[in-house]
Each structure stands twice: as structure tokens, then as C-alpha cells.
Amino acid sequence: MKTDDSKAVITGAGINFSFGQGELRKQILFDVELAIQPGEIVLLTGPSGSGKTTLLTLIAGLRKLQEGRLDVLGHSLHNASQTDLLKLRRKIGFIFQAHNLLPYLTALQNVQVMFDLQPGVTIKEGRERATRILQQVGLGERMNYHVSRLSGGQKQRVAIARALVGRPELVLADEPTAALDGTSGREVVNLLQSLAREQKRPILMVTHDVRVLDIADRIIEMQDGHLTASSRGSSSAENHPAKGVQNESDIAAVTF
């Protein structure tokens, strides 16, 4: 794959990573090289235990890079300081398999609280943007529900709204559909795709879910710690808006 590294969102080369020390040391990633361009939706697949999550945590600045070069959103992660990593993480929208929303907050508060990371955003603006994005993920009616009163799919949609409300420069998602049934999984992915497209946010998403592979611009595969293949996805940045959106009202007027 040939890319123009200078404007890439993520570039990495020669990444090796191991867990454990001494005899227990076990290498997980081997000479990984990757590049992700602005606006690209890249899916990362591969067998369980192949190192997908580990790679994601490295890109997110959640683990210390051991060997190789990795630049994310203009931050060089080699020997990066904690403050630098914190700054980087604030530019990333995270979607986890477990939504981990704060159970004592409403859907709206869970989303709005993200603006505590952006002191420039006023309370009024914060509430407006959080409201708008919750409407866009189809939760306009349930904004003031405590998250305990939402279904699994609805919670994951709140998590997506939370990940995207701060206009992140990159979205990292790890199996966001794993805990959901087929239909809500599909909805969530469509939503993610369309929101990200409108915002022109690149997405790197780990998934096992073959049903959602069609949203990708590109699919990369990991085998035993090696990135083995890269194939063009069935979707692409050029032929957008996304297909397969089931609930059109969910994504109406995406401008936040």
C-alpha cells in the first residue's frame, strides 16, 4: 500500500511489542507497518488473540511504545510524556466494547460531560451540541433518561455520541457491536459511519462482525501479530452517503 505519509493521520513502521519480562516475555506485535489517511474508515480484523486490541491501545497512547515509530495526529509516540499522551487522547473519540457510561448520569449528561475536557466550550454550547448529537443517534426522546433505563443498543449509541461530540480528529473503536444483536449492531455501525463521514473523521475499528465489513474503505487483517493483508472495502469516501442506513431520521442533517 502506498500512501502519502506527510498528511496521514496515523503512520507506523517497525512496531514490535511484547508483554511480560524475561522468560515470560511474549511478543505480540511483529514489525507492524500501517498508515491511515484523513477521512478513511479502516476495519481491522483477524483471529482472536492476534494482537488487534494491543495495536489499538498503542495508537491510542494507552500503552508505552516499545520499539518502532508511530505518529498519531502529529504526536510522535516514541518516548512521549504522560501529558503529551493525555493531549493526544483528548483528540481521539473512543468507542469501547463495554460502553462504560456513568450510571448516575443521564444520557445527555454522559455526552455533555465530555466538554469538561474542552474548557473553551460554554455550558450552553455544550448542552446544545450534546442534544443535537443525541438527536442524530436517535435518542432525542430519551436524552434525560438515566443510562440504566436504556437498552444495550441505545447505550452504545450514547457511547458513540459521547465519542464524537467533541469533534475528535480520529475515532478508535474496538468491537463496538460485539455486545449487540444483529439489528442494533448494524444500526450502530451505520450511524458511526455516517457521522464520521459528515465530520470527515477517520475511523479505525476492530471488528469480527462480518456483517459490517461493507462500511469500510479498507480492511486490514492481523495474523499472529503481523499485518498480513490489506483489501479495499466495498464502501469508499468517494461514493458516499453510506448505504444500508436503516433509520434515515437517525442521521438527518449531520452538522455538529
Binding site: 491510542a60 494507552l62 493525555l86 493531549k87 487522547r89 483528548r90 481521539i92 473512543f94 469501547f96 463495554a98 462504560n100 457510561l101 456513568l102 450510571p103 465530555m114 469538561d116 475536557l117
Partner: peptide, 18 residues
């Protein structure tokens, strides 16, 4: 009880101080 939530917040960029 809220450890996963706090870990998530840390991952998203909330500081220890927060």
C-alpha cells in the same frame, strides 16, 4: 464499583486531578 467507568474516563483524556 466504578473502576471501569473511571478507567474509561482516563482513557478518554480525563486527568487524575479531575
Amino acid at each position: 464499583n466504578h473502576l471501569p467507568q473511571y478507567a474509561t474516563m482516563k482513557a478518554m483524556g480525563f486527568s487524575d486531578g479531575y
